[in-house]
Simulated assay, not measured.
Amino acid sequence: MLQDGTIIEGRSITPRHMPNSFYPLVLAREVEFPGIPISNSGFCLDKSLDRNKAKGKIVVCMRGEGGRIRKELEVERAGGVGFILGNNELLGNDISSDVHFIPSTQVSYHMS
């Protein structure tokens, strides 16, 4: 649940849980290093996230380029406390359940 009460349903197999408190939610492109090509922006590719911007936040990364687990590891490397993997329109409602190292979930493209 988001702070404004919006509920977004996802799927996850994560052994770690977040405490019941709110953390800032940011899109990956908002916490990337400057100069990331637009074609690679938002995917949380290796060494793309700026620790000064991502630390202590839940980072939303888009599915597409790069592996799902590698994206989560990039968020963890940058100090993110959580990871949301969002599908693009092409992948729609295809949701995989991966084991993650930080609190994580994957959400579909279409929200009801």
Rank of each mutant, 00 (worst) to 15 (best):
G42C: 06
H17R: 07
P15W: 11
D4C: 15
L49R: 02
D98C: 09
A78N: 03
K57M: 07
I8C: 10
D98G: 03
P19A: 14
I58T: 01
R77N: 06
E65W: 10
S39C: 12
S112G: 15
G82W: 00
G86Q: 06
T6M: 12
S39W: 14
K47S: 13
M111C: 06
F83N: 00
T14Q: 06
V26M: 09
P19W: 03
G66D: 06
I8Y: 09
G35I: 10
P103T: 03
T105P: 00
L85F: 08
T105S: 05
P15F: 05
A28C: 09
C44E: 02
L49P: 01
L27W: 10
I13P: 00
K53H: 05
A78T: 10
P34K: 11
S104Y: 01
I36D: 02
K71E: 01
M18D: 00
P15H: 09
N40T: 08
M1G: 07
D46L: 13
G64C: 04
H100D: 10
L73Y: 05
V75Y: 02
E32L: 09
S108V: 08
L90G: 04
G56V: 15
R16H: 15
L27V: 07
D50R: 04
T6K: 10
C61P: 01
F33Q: 07
I8K: 03
I13S: 13
